[in-house]
Design a binder for these strands. Structure first.
Lengths: 250, 250
DNA sequence: CGTTCTTTTGATAGCTCTCAAGTCGCGTGG
DNA sequence: CCACGCGACTTGAGAGCTATCAAAAGAACG
C-alpha cells in the first residue's frame, strides 16, 4: 500500500444547464449552498469562482509562507499539512487538513500566507479566489455567514490546541479527533491510515517524536490501538476518548 | 494607586448632524471606517448599531460560556480576560484584551460563547450586534473586509500561542507583546501595570505560577525588568525581545 | 540490495511542576 | 492609626514528565 487512494467523493450537479461545474458534498461550503438557499445566479457565480486544482504530489507545496494571498482552498482529496518556521528556523506544524476542510483563512490578515501548506499524499483542491468570494458574499448572506463561521471555528480550534495537557491526553485526543474527521469524509470508522510521519504528529502536539512512539506503544499495550506502521485500528474508541477527556478539554 | 485610570481616549465626530454617536479612534473598527471610505449612511448605520456598555467592575462577567451569542465587543477601556473551563474543571486563560481589541469572534461558530469574559479592572465596551453587523457588512465591503481581517488575525494569534517554547521565552514574549499593545493604546512605553494576577499570566502561558514568579526574579536579576508588584518597568526591551526571539517565533 | 528515512527503544538529563512554607501587600475593622 | 486577615506572591526542595542523545531495527525506494 504505497499510496493512499481516497474513495470517490459524492458530488451533486448544481444545475442542469450542462455546466460541468461540480461541488463536493463534503465541501465546507456545501453547507452554505444547501442550508441557506442560494439562488441560481449566486450558485452559478460560486461555480465560476471555484477552480479545481491538483493533483499535488506528496511533498509538493500548495502555497508557501510569504506568498501573496489570493485564494482559500477546500481540500477535495488527500491530506494537507500546514506549518510555519520561526526566526530560529524551527518548524511548527499548525494542522492537518482533510477533505472538506478549508485552508488559507489565516492569510487574510496580511494578504500573505503566514504558513506553508504541503501535500502529504495525493491532494486535490478547490480553489476560491478570495477577493471574488468576498464580493459574492456581499450578495449572498449565507455565504458570508459561512465564511464567518469557518473562521470562527478555526479560532476556537487553535485556542484549544494551545491548551496544556499531558502528552498521552494530547495524543489520544488527536487520534479520536482525526478518526472522527475521517469518518466525516466517508472513511470507515475504527481504522485509519495516517498520512503524516510520527515526527509531524509530535511537532503538532508539541512532543518529541520519541515520546509519540512510546505513547503508541503504551496505547497498544493497553489495547487502545493496533499499529501497523501508519495504519491504525482503534478498537477501543471509548477508552481513547476517556484518556483524551481525562485531560483534554472539549 | 488602587485603581488604574486609563487616559481619555481620543474620539472623532462621525457626522455633524448633532448625532451623539462617537467612535474611539483606537477601536478595531476605526480602520474600517476610515480607510475604506464608508459613506455617510453606512456610517450612521454603524452608529445605530454600536452600544456603549459598562462600566464593568473588576471581576464582573462580560459574558459567560454557553450564553447565546448576539454581539461582539470592542474593549474601550480596561482589560478583559477570556477563559474557558474544560470537562475536568480546569481553567484555560485564552487571552487578555486591551482597548481597541475585539472579543467574541470565536462565538460565531456555534452562536454561543465558548468562553467566559471577565473584567480585570474598570472596563467599558462598545457592543455591536453581530447579526446587524453582518447585514451591514453586506452593504459595506470595507466593514466585511475588516471583520474577515480581525478573525484571520485571531487565528494566527492563537496558532502562535500554541507553539512550543521554553518558559522564559514565552514570558519574555508576553511582556514585549503586552507592552507594545499598551503603547498602541496610548500608554507610555517602557512601563506598565499588569491588570492580571501572576496566576493568570502563568495559565495563559501554560506555566505554573511559581515558574512565572521565578522568571520575574531572573529577569529582574538580569536587568531586563524592574518589578513593583504588578507595576513593571522594561528598561531593556531589546534584551527581552532577544530572549523572546531566541525562542518565540514571530 | 544498498541507501535513506522513519520508527522504535534505552539511558540520561533537564525543565517545569508540585508541594510546602514563608513573605508581602492591601483592605478591613477595631 | 494600627492590627488583623486574606489573598497574592515568592522561595525552596524534591519529584516527574518529557526531551535529548544514541543506536539499532524496520520500511520505502530506486
Amino acid at each position: 500500500m504505497s499510496r493512499v487512494v481516497y474513495p470517490a467523493i459524492a458530488r451533486w450537479r448544481a444545475t442542469d444547464d450542462g455546466d460541468a461545474a461540480h461541488f463536493c458534498s463534503t465541501c465546507a461550503f456545501s453547507r452554505a449552498c444547501h442550508a441557506h438557499g442560494m439562488d441560481k445566479s449566486a450558485l452559478r457565480d460560486l461555480h465560476l469562482l471555484v477552480e479545481h486544482v491538483g493533483p499535488f504530489e506528496p511533498g509538493q507545496n500548495v502555497f508557501r509562507a510569504g506568498d501573496r494571498f489570493e485564494a482559500i482552498a477546500a481540500v477535495r482529496e488527500g491530506t494537507v499539512k500546514t506549518w510555519r518556521v520561526d526566526r530560529e528556523g524551527r518548524e511548527q506544524v499548525l494542522g492537518f487538513h482533510l477533505p472538506g476542510e478549508i485552508i488559507g483563512l489565516s492569510a487574510i490578515e496580511n494578504e500573505r500566507y503566514p504558513c506553508n501548506a504541503v501535500a502529504l499524499d495525493l491532494v486535490q483542491l478547490c480553489r476560491f479566489s478570495f477577493p471574488r468570494m468576498a464580493v459574492l458574499a456581499t450578495r449572498v448572506p449565507g455565504l458570508q455567514k459561512e465564511l464567518f463561521r469557518l473562521m470562527s471555528r478555526d479560532i476556537g480550534h487553535a485556542e484549544r490546541l494551545a491548551a496544556d495537557y499531558p502528552a498521552d491526553a494530547r495524543l489520544a485526543h488527536f487520534l479520536v479527533d482525526h478518526a472522527q474527521r475521517l469518518v466525516r469524509c466517508g472513511f470507515p470508522p475504527g481504522r485509519m491510515r495516517l498520512a503524516m510521519p510520527r515526527s509531524d504528529i509530535a511537532n503538532y502536539l508539541r512532543l518529541a517524536p520519541e515520546t509519540v512512539s512510546r505513547l503508541f506503544r503504551r496505547f497498544r499495550d493497553a489495547g487502545l490501538i493496533r499499529v501497523h506502521g501508519r495504519n491504525l485500528d482503534l478498537p477501543d474508541l471509548p477508552g481513547l476518548e476517556r484518556l483524551a477527556a481525562t485531560a483534554l478539554g472539549n
